[in-house]
């Protein structure tokens, strides 16, 4: 997911570049990775060793930095990360692009009038403001990614679903185990949603003069009011609304 987000930001900035070559290559990437099923991409990365038995990263026509047998290098885990990350990058790019487009053009004008370069403007002025628009759909994507990780079971990487399958293949308790899987997914998505709430609060700071109270603060305040309530005051309950 982190890889997806980083890739997404890079791709979005590229796509909005005035340079047609840069924007075009980003558009091509998004077109390809968004246009093919993630399941196919996962299987592709898993079986990449059939195409390139040996993989090396290095300076072209120079010495290799890393090289090795593709079967060892692309483990099911690496294939899962590559497949999900590269695919996520394409979606995230569009989310970031939407966020960037939502920022008032006057902001770019002002930053450029001050002599800031395009990259400085992006990093210091536009992206921080775009975050407010980017975060909610990104939260969506994080959760959806968590569930998409169940797809990884097809390349025999023991994530949650595949582990459960392994167990019920032995003890035949399919339904109970699938329920356990659901509960675990719910637990993790709940934690992620709470995280998202606090992140949004932090970045919403400058728009409102005071941020709304968190649920915890509200509960505490509610308790305090209950303690302070004086019984038998006429109209007390009516005035409260």
């Amino acid at each position: 997911m982190l890889m997806g987000i980083a890739l997404g930001v890079g791709l979005a900035v590229m796509r909005l570049s005035p340079n047609p070559l840069v924007a075009g290559s980003s558009a091509l990437y998004i077109w390809f990775f968004r246009g093919t099923p993630v399941l196919v991409q996962l299987l592709f990365w898993n079986f990449i060793s059939a195409l390139y038995p040996e993989i090396s990263i290095g300076i072209p026509f120079g010495p290799d930095v890393i090289s090795g047998d593709a079967n060892e290098l692309i483990t099911p885990f690496a294939a899962a990360i590559l497949g999900l990350g590269l695919n996520q990058g394409a979606y995230q790019a569009e989310i970031v692009r939407a966020g960037v487009l939502s920022v008032d053009e006057g902001q770019t004008d002002a930053a450029q009038a001050l002599g800031m370069t395009r990259l400085q403007t992006m990093r210091r002025i536009v992206l921080p403001q775009a975050l407010r628009v980017i975060i909610p759909p990104t939260g969506n994507e994080v959760i959806s990614m968590l569930k998409t990780s169940a797809l990884v079971s097809v390349i025999a990487y023991p994530e949650l679903l595949y582990s459960a399958q392994l167990i019920y293949a032995v003890n035949f308790k399919q339904i109970p185990l699938l329920l356990v899987v659901c509960i675990w997914y719910l637990v993790v998505t709940t934690i992620l949603s709470i995280g998202q709430y606090y992140i949004e609060r932090r970045f919403g700071r400058s728009s409102a003069s005071a941020p709304p109270p968190t649920p915890m603060q509200r509960i505490r305040r509610g308790l305090a009011i209950r303690h302070a309530r004086i019984p038998d005051v006429p109209g007390a309950s009516g005035d409260r609304r």
Binding site: G106, Q107, A110, A111, L114, G115, M116, S206
Partner: peptide, 25 residues
């Protein structure tokens, strides 16, 4: 080039109709 344009812009101030202050700062 963009960097040269930016360098020259730095010598010219501009004040906008709608202020365009950076709201996150």
């Amino acid at each position: 080039r963009e960097s040269d344009v930016a360098r020259k812009r730095a010598q010219i101030g501009m004040v906008f109709q709608r202020f365009n202050l950076f709201p996150h700062m």
